[in-house]
Design a protein around this nucleic acid. Sequence first.
DNA 1: TGTTCATGCTAAATCGTTATAGCTCGTACG
DNA 2: CGTACGAGCTATAACGATTTAGCATGAACA
Lengths: 344, 344
Amino acid sequence: MKGISIKDIAKQAGVSPTTVSFVLNGKAKEKRISDQVSKKILKLAAKLKYKPNQLARGLRTGKTKTIGLIVEDIANHFFANVAKIVEEEADKFGYKVLYGSTEDNLVKARGLLEVLEYRQVDGYIITPTPNLDKEIEVLKNSRKPMVLMDRYLPQIPTNYVMVNNFQGAYDAAEYLLELGYQKIALVTTTSEQIQMKERFNGFTAAMKAHRASLPRKMCKKIPFGATNEEAVSQITEFIKGLPGLDAIFFTTNYLGIYGIESVKELGMKIGEDVALISFDDHDLFRLHTPGITCVAQPIHDIARNLIQVLMNELNQHNNQINQVVLPATLVKRESCRKKAKTVA
Amino acid sequence: MKGISIKDIAKQAGVSPTTVSFVLNGKAKEKRISDQVSKKILKLAAKLKYKPNQLARGLRTGKTKTIGLIVEDIANHFFANVAKIVEEEADKFGYKVLYGSTEDNLVKARGLLEVLEYRQVDGYIITPTPNLDKEIEVLKNSRKPMVLMDRYLPQIPTNYVMVNNFQGAYDAAEYLLELGYQKIALVTTTSEQIQMKERFNGFTAAMKAHRASLPRKMCKKIPFGATNEEAVSQITEFIKGLPGLDAIFFTTNYLGIYGIESVKELGMKIGEDVALISFDDHDLFRLHTPGITCVAQPIHDIARNLIQVLMNELNQHNNQINQVVLPATLVKRESCRKKAKTVA
DNA sequence: TGTTCATGCTAAATCGTTATAGCTCGTACG
DNA sequence: CGTACGAGCTATAACGATTTAGCATGAACA
């Protein structure tokens, strides 16, 4: 049950395979193929439902029209949504997407990169894990089209598309202050990743700018590999140790989710006893009662820009670097409200 | 910057490409290549980090070691999780996954199938949209390895892996009755898809078996394409029209989520004024207060079985059909509780 | 008549593998 | 001495496209 090949068309049209190839690649004019012959070939191709063999084509041209997408976790709301748009956008350019999840694990990331090389993908969209620098450098030096997402490697100048983590967190802090919250805590992870650092920095910068204080004891770092239960209990203890606390900022959505659990465990009411605000949106935040205020990433824009940048690289090997930083938007829900001024 | 080919190894080893190919494909013994030569080739291959060109190999063998995964929506919790495990499991067999979302839209599904054929995937995992029968039939007749997920087409016997929708819904009904609920309603969609029908049938069967009634007016069908607001308002109206209602079963998670909103809008307390139970788990159900009881699908098992069945097809073209139906599990949370008997 | 040139097409090489058919030894056997 | 056989390897033809180089043909021109 073999498919129709260029030879079959050639035979039926009474011309050579070369001619067929020229016509089907739109080079009829350039290669001076008569309109008569051109039309005949085009008609036949349509009639026989000719589909070029991508393998043969790829073997000859060295292009697979495939891009590799490496995410942290495809089952995660943010990455799944980016992946979806990436796939749709890539499709518009005739590219398919091979994906894989790293779980933020260096070894897995290496494995994925290897498989993608093996598969001869034309370009890469990568969410780098910690310590992936060397591999990224290699990719960069071999001039493979590549764009990083969600985070970048400060030591290596590369293309990337990210949200403005600093600004997003800054806005979150300002918003809390504006509403009158005074005893504000922050929960982040021990991960040294740049995006987490920038969220932390943005938040503290805003606090400083408004002469509010964020002493060390108001900041909690949850170990990166912590289980659900560990994380929740650590946050619970942290909150317990802070009487008078009136708002908490979480630097990422899963921490925010743990936070909701912790707050409930303590019998506190979200939005009344304590305000919650988290980086990254989530279905849960939207549908929770009360809704959880958050700093949302522009998922569509991120995905679109990723493909844009990659296609740029793919089509013209200029060595200009594209670094896209997109604004985060504050999504206001009921977990933060105007606070009646209380005497400290 | 071309890669190392079999020819390079051949040249350096002073043998023919054929010999190299034999050795690297583990056919050294069979093809009577001496151990000496074998070892030399293996060493060289390792030293040069030889990676076979998948395109050339695929062109020659007709296999791409790639499978196509068609889901309803990769951004959806259930499908994203299945996709993740599918990717991991496929990797174990040396397969990569190309994916795409249909949005349950026939035209998109057709497009995806076309692209996947074009890409010469070796096998398909498909979540069929409504009316995809013809395309599935074609695939089946061309003997392409294929397995359906989440739903099947009653008219066409094919491989599939699904949860036991009937049993899951049956269990849900029994559980509600056991807890003492009496005035029970059901909310489903107008979609004619088999999995929805079976959930409906399972639920009604259990009711009948226990001589409980589920008159037509206690069943609500929400139009498939309804927007958030429309759905919520329809459910709200439905509930309003049923005084004394004490429990509601939703046939899928997004309906359950709408249901939560509706109940809240009406000022009723979940688990107290009315019990909620939904098919399909969701982060939101787990983290909601009170937690929402649901019938959960065994995501890991589903993904593992999908790959299992597909690999079976891929490796041995027996034409035996594999239909795997996995048990659903009732996840008990606080949205349903023991009800004090009331006088009707 | 012979050269030049444009037109319209094709032969053949190539990409990197795999698979079929067979070649060249040396040895053993009658 | 001839030949049959097995061991150990290789030449070559695919797979299906792209691409380079170039072959006919006829018209134009000197």
